[in-house]
């Protein structure tokens, strides 16, 4: 049985007006051989968790610029937990102050990617994380 392509949900919670950065990342992950489910802007925590569940993704990538991550991220983590999606790899990017990063990692995010991160690094990070999870599942 062949290894399935890594499936990633890329979503923007909150009320950000544009999704240029998320599109750049989505495109880069596509070019890195991943299947990217793109849902775009103005996603509620419920919408994100529902899409992650139905699409059976390995990774949820969130992009946020507005600063609302402090309010929204815990709610998204909670929604994912409720749907028993604790084993999904969570990553995020956008405008996130350095001071907030420890709390976000504490919440269960594997990676936080700020402005200037190379998209190749993001793809490599995701690949390594998913390989570890898949290895753990079959072991």
């Amino acid at each position: 049985m062949s290894e399935r392509p890594i499936r990633v949900l890329v979503a923007k919670p909150g009320l950000d007006g544009h999704d240029r950065g998320a599109k750049v990342v989505a495109r880069a992950l596509r070019d890195a051989g991943m299947e990217v489910i793109y849902t775009g802007i103005r996603q509620t925590p419920e919408m994100i968790a529902e899409a992650a569940l139905q699409e059976d993704v390995d990774v949820v990538g969130l992009s946020i610029l507005s600063g609302a991550h402090r309010d929204l991220f815990p709610r998204i983590v909670e929604q994912l937990k409720q749907k028993q999606l604790d084993d999904v790899v969570l990553v995020c990017g956008g405008i996130i102050p350095d001071d907030d990063i420890p709390a976000i990692k504490q919440m269960g995010f594997a990676g936080v990617f700020g402005p200037g991160t190379s998209t190749q690094d993001i793809a490599a990070f995701i690949r390594a994380q998913v390989a570890r999870k898949r290895g753990a599942r079959t072991a």
């Binding site: 596509r30 070019d31 890195a32 051989g33």
Partner: peptide, 15 residues
């Protein structure tokens, strides 16, 4: 569609 080059895809219908 899946990319013939990378094997990746952008699935945007849900949007």
């Amino acid at each position: 569609p899946t990319s013939p080059f990378s094997g990746g895809a952008l699935l945007g219908d849900r949007l």
